[in-house]
Amino acid sequence: MVIDSTPIAQQTPANDTADSATDVRMSNAAIDAQLKSIIADVLGVDAADAEEFTAETGLFGHLPELDSMAVAGLLTEIEDRLDIVIEDDDVDGEMLETFGGLLAFVEAKLTEG
């Protein structure tokens, strides 16, 4: 699996042009792909398996191998690859419970950044 190592934040256009809605949608697809790739790396599953993740796919509390140390590694890797900072207070059960929750959190972080 080849992963574009450019931080997503740098791929998001800074200007607000007519094309920005399209760019943002593409950017969201890229975030989705990056998150799936990180989770695949943490779980040790193939990229194809991670492709099947949906918003409802359960994470922390649903997958026994995702203990606190694994989630700590997951969050640190998200910070590194997506060039964001995740504060302790950002982390709550809802955000970590499903893939959709994590994706929404990261998208919001990138938007505010």
């Binding site: 606190s68 700590a72 590694g73 982390v91 059960g93």
Partner: peptide, 20 residues
């Protein structure tokens, strides 16, 4: 920092609020 974060996360599960 990663080990501190793991402790914070484990604490949250037990309703203990700690920060790194």
């Amino acid at each position: 920092r990663e080990m501190l974060r793991a402790r914070v996360l484990a604490g949250r599960e037990a309703a203990i609020h700690e920060t790194r």
